[in-house]
Structures are given as structure tokens and as C-alpha cells.
Computed example of a mutant assay.
Amino acid sequence: MLSAPLAVSLLVGALTLLLIAWSMFTNKQWDPRGQHCYVTGGSAGLGLSLAILLAKRGADVSIVARNQERLQAALEAIEKVRQTPNQVLKAYSFSLNDASSSAAAFDAACKGNGGKCPDAVFLCAGASRPGFFIEQDEASLQLGMDNGYWVQAWSTKAAAKRMALDRFPGKIVFVSSVLGYMSFVGYSSYSPAKHALRGLAETLRSELLLYGVSVHIFFPGTIYTPGYTEENKTKPKITLKIEETDEGMQPEQAAARLLRGVQKGQFHISADLLGNIFRSSTRGATPHNNVFMDGIYSFMGWIGLAFWRRGVDTSVLNHRKEHQEYLSKMGFFNAKPTEFSGSEGALYSL
């Protein structure tokens, strides 16, 4: 005969499994068909691939970026997958680096869709300038926050305000990076912005419950875009070495995984095994995606991430001599602290 504590434990376990199974099979997935989807950074990379995927699913799509020529080419690509004659597919040329321009872009997209607030806002705009921290100057560090954080935060401000005013239960989807969970050498002007996006998303997930607005945030690893190729030409050698075994994704794969996470209602969306391990190991008060699997990922991280970090640190320490030679070549030791600025790094879109 089972003891009372054991019987209670088994009952609790069985009920937990039933609840998990019930949630997996009863949650209705979000369907983008007929929804107005607003995509920033929609002229290239992840943003363009996502816009094409949403159009294939029957959504009305508004893309926003700065370059008019690339926007036009992107819109033509989106038009090729149009599903119905009355789908609204439009492109808007705006800079999103300040509050007023971001608000103007959002208002234009609303007006272009019959005054309807977007049902879902996908924030794919962003850029990075890799390099060593001592190479960065005030302008480059500020640019890192502008291109990594504010370019999404200002659009979020416009969207959240409009959704609250209209009492509209929309979705806001941030794009961070696996570097928003951790970081390493070379990303001092990029990773802080991606961590900041997580902080904003965590706050707004709670606050926007007041208006029925759901919040999601995507943490992809490497995405193979033309910008990524350009970035690697000037990225520090030690950063390239640490990343040399990285198995990245094509933009289409990343877009599919992002959309799948949104459809499932996940708050933190990971793109691969490593992302899930970092997500579960740094979860804090973030809701689980799957209680059972998140426990497995967390256990894997408890063991594996210690070895990964030790390997990264060893690579950095082994690079010290080469780095000293690089600094000498760049004139670091002959310059005043306020004068030195390295040459590594390049802007790229997500």
C-alpha cells in the first residue's frame, strides 16, 4: 500500500502532466491570416523573410525601413506571394532612430490600412558594430544603444500608446539575440542593448496586461544575412574564433521559428537548442515555454555552460599575445586614452 506522502506526490505529478498536456492541445494558436502585421527592418534579412512569410500566411503587411530602393525591391518580393487580391501590402520609408519618426511611421501604416492599428508589431530593425571596448568612443557606444535598443523601443512606444488608446489587444514582438542572455569579447557596443531589450520586454509583458496587449521577444543566434558577411570582415579575430563552430540559420529559418513562437504564445522565443539552454538557465521569473523541457534544458545548462564558458575564457587568454601585437600595430600604446579609436566593426541589419 502506498504511503500518504508518496500517493500525494504521485497525484500532484499526474495532475501536472495532465495540465501540461491540456495546455498543449487546447491553446488556440494565433493566426496571421487577415491580420495587419507591421514589420520594421522589413527591407532585408530577418525582417524581409518574416514579411514574406506573413504575406504567405494571408496577412496584411506593412514594412518600414530607411532605404527607398531596397524597400521597393522588398515590396516586389512580398507581392509575389500575395494570397488574395484584397491583401494590403505596403512599404514606408522612415528612420526609426527617434521617437517622432517612429510615431510618424506607425501612424502612416495605420492610415495605409484604413486607420486600423496593426494587430502585430514585429521589431526587426537593428544594427551592430563589433569591436574591442577600448576601441569604442562615445559616439560608437551611443550608436550601439541607438541601433540595438532605441530603434525598437521608440516603435514600441508608438505601438503601445496607440493600442492602449484604441483598447486594441495587439501583439508586440521584440528581436533581441542570444547575446541578450550572455556575451563575450567583441560585443561591448551590441550586447548591452540586447540585454536592455529583455528588460523592456519583461516590464511590458506585465504592464501591457492592463490593455490586453501581449509581448514576445526573440533570441536568435547567428543569422546568415549579407550584413552578417560584412560584419565578419572586420570582427575581432578572437570573436570569429569563438564563433567558428556556430551553426547559424538562414533568415527564412529564423523567421519561421520566430512566427512559430508567437503563434504558440511564447514570451521568450528561442531558435535552437543552445538558445533554449541559455533561456532556461537565465529564466528568472520568465514564464516557462514547457515545464518539462525547460527543466531538461536547465539541467543541460547547469552542466554544459560551465564548460562552454571555460572554453571561451581559455580562448581569450590564449589570444592575449596576438591582441597586444594588434594594439601596438594600431598605435594604442602611443596614443592618449582619449585619442584612440580602432578600425574594426561594421553596421549590419538583423
Score class of each variant (00 low, 15 high):
residue 1 M to I: 14
residue 3 S to E: 03
residue 8 V to C: 15
residue 9 S to P: 00
residue 11 L to M: 13
residue 15 L to F: 02
residue 19 L to T: 06
residue 20 I to P: 01
residue 23 S to D: 14
residue 25 F to I: 13
residue 26 T to C: 07
residue 28 K to Q: 12
residue 29 Q to V: 08
residue 32 P to H: 11
residue 33 R to I: 01
residue 34 G to L: 02
residue 35 Q to Y: 03
residue 42 G to T: 05
residue 47 G to V: 03
residue 48 L to N: 02
residue 50 L to M: 15
residue 56 K to H: 12
residue 68 Q to Y: 01
residue 69 E to A: 15
residue 72 Q to F: 01
residue 75 L to K: 06
residue 75 L to Y: 01
residue 76 E to D: 14
residue 77 A to Q: 14
residue 78 I to S: 05
residue 89 L to T: 04
residue 90 K to D: 02
residue 93 S to I: 03
residue 93 S to V: 00
residue 93 S to L: 04
residue 99 A to V: 11
residue 102 S to H: 05
residue 105 A to M: 11
residue 110 C to T: 13
residue 112 G to W: 09
residue 113 N to A: 10
residue 114 G to E: 10
residue 114 G to N: 14
residue 116 K to S: 03
residue 119 D to G: 04
residue 121 V to P: 01
residue 123 L to H: 06
residue 124 C to K: 00
residue 133 F to G: 02
residue 133 F to E: 14
residue 138 E to K: 14
residue 142 Q to H: 13
residue 143 L to R: 04
residue 150 W to C: 03
residue 152 Q to H: 02
residue 156 T to Q: 01
residue 159 A to W: 07
residue 160 A to D: 01
residue 160 A to Q: 04
residue 161 K to L: 15
residue 167 R to T: 04
residue 167 R to S: 13
residue 171 K to V: 07
residue 171 K to P: 02
residue 174 F to C: 03
residue 177 S to V: 13
residue 180 G to Y: 01
residue 183 S to E: 04
residue 186 G to Q: 05
residue 187 Y to G: 03
residue 193 A to Q: 11
residue 196 A to M: 03
residue 198 R to D: 08
residue 199 G to A: 13
residue 199 G to S: 10
residue 207 E to R: 10
residue 207 E to F: 02
residue 209 L to E: 13
residue 211 Y to R: 07
residue 212 G to P: 11
residue 214 S to F: 05
residue 215 V to L: 08
residue 217 I to M: 03
residue 217 I to W: 06
residue 218 F to C: 09
residue 220 P to F: 04
residue 230 E to Q: 15
residue 232 N to L: 09
residue 232 N to H: 15
residue 233 K to M: 12
residue 234 T to Q: 08
residue 234 T to D: 06
residue 235 K to W: 02
residue 236 P to F: 05
residue 236 P to R: 07
residue 237 K to T: 10
residue 238 I to L: 09
residue 238 I to P: 01
residue 244 E to K: 15
residue 244 E to N: 15
residue 246 D to W: 04
residue 249 M to N: 08
residue 251 P to G: 09
residue 251 P to Q: 08
residue 252 E to N: 06
residue 252 E to H: 10
residue 254 A to H: 02
residue 255 A to E: 11
residue 264 K to I: 08
residue 271 A to P: 04
residue 277 I to R: 01
residue 279 R to H: 07
residue 281 S to G: 10
residue 284 G to N: 09
residue 287 P to E: 12
residue 288 H to Y: 08
residue 288 H to D: 02
residue 294 D to M: 13
residue 296 I to S: 10
residue 297 Y to K: 03
residue 298 S to E: 06
residue 299 F to G: 01
residue 299 F to A: 11
residue 303 I to V: 15
residue 303 I to T: 15
residue 304 G to M: 04
residue 304 G to K: 09
residue 305 L to W: 11
residue 309 R to D: 10
residue 310 R to Y: 06
residue 311 G to D: 14
residue 312 V to H: 08
residue 314 T to C: 06
residue 314 T to V: 12
residue 314 T to H: 15
residue 316 V to F: 09
residue 324 Q to R: 13
residue 327 L to N: 11
residue 327 L to H: 05
residue 328 S to D: 13
residue 329 K to W: 13
residue 336 K to C: 08
residue 341 S to D: 00
residue 348 Y to F: 14
residue 349 S to L: 00
